[in-house]
Design a protein around this nucleic acid. Structure first.
Lengths: 148, 148
DNA sequence: GAGATTTGGTTGACATGTCACCAACATAAG
DNA sequence: CTTATGTTGGTGACATGTCAACCAAATCTC
């Protein structure tokens, strides 16, 4: 017997779906307009910029971002063509691939960051109380950790 | 001067992103495995099934789902080819397009629903307390309504 | 009621991400 | 050494969604 969602549960679920749809669309558009980056680009650059030497193994990067290697490989290819990152062979492991931020990639994300943070604040963070912020962080991590 | 995110804010933001990534991926995969539907398919069928006569104007449907007309038009084309919906001319408005659930579409979503609800429960709803559920619903709708 | 505008919807080009699979290399067992 | 196994990446085919251009029917204006 199916246990359907109660009104309250449905409200939360549909709300989540709607937020996800609209928020990501808006943030993505603003980021693209301001800096020419997609959210995916931003995440990759952001991760690389906080790595030692601005470089990381594809595999590590993918694991940290919870992306599939395939997805990251495709994405890196495109970012490479735009001059944002480079892809070098790994000395230790003949298969390995080292992804490195280019100077242009670094400057791109440095320019993009303030605007993106402002967008995130405007459309999400600043709309929440301290408590709501805590709850969101708590449940999001609980849900995500079950899926890792 | 940029107002960067505090640790707490960053925790909530990154948590949201991670939840979004993993949860949607998982739910999508389970739904696809169980019923051959994507989440998008499911949403369209679900909306149509609760409409009078199981039919709706493309435009209305798009507005209700907050999808672009373009996206819905493309999607309907594909669902039509799979026999899930039909697309008929509208009598009143020569431009109009009426999307109707086929019997097959109806039976497909009826079969898919229990499993999907179970997935949503397992990976999200049942992991939250009553209070958390309320907070999620509240903030999601607040954020989304600012973007409509 | 002719011309301008809006609205409803379609289409094409393109970016992204998924899956399935392959190739090269690494490692442990025998 | 040699084979079985797992790891690291890359690729191609395909589904999806975005934007922008476009068409045609419906409305509005004067």
């Amino acid at each position: 017997m199916t246990k359907w969602l109660t009104d309250k549960e449905m409200h939360a679920w549909l709300g989540y779906r709607r937020m996800r749809l609209l928020l990501d669309l808006r943030l993505g558009r603003e980021l693209m307009a301001q800096s020419g980056l997609s959210e995916a680009d931003y995440d990759v650059l952001s991760n690389l910029s906080s790595a030692p030497d601005h470089r990381k193994r594809l595999s590590e990067l993918a694991a940290h971002m919870r992306w599939s290697k395939s997805r990251l490989s495709h994405h890196v290819t495109r970012m490479q063509q735009r001059g944002l990152v480079t892809r070098d062979e790994c000395a230790d492991d003949g298969r390995g691939s080292l992804i490195t931020l280019t100077p242009q990639g670094l400057s791109t994300i440095e320019q993009a960051a303030p605007g993106h943070v402002a967008s995130v604040r405007e459309h999400l963070i600043d709309l929440l109380t301290e408590e709501e912020l805590d709850v969101l962080g708590t449940i999001a991590h609980r849900v995500a950790s079950r899926l890792a």
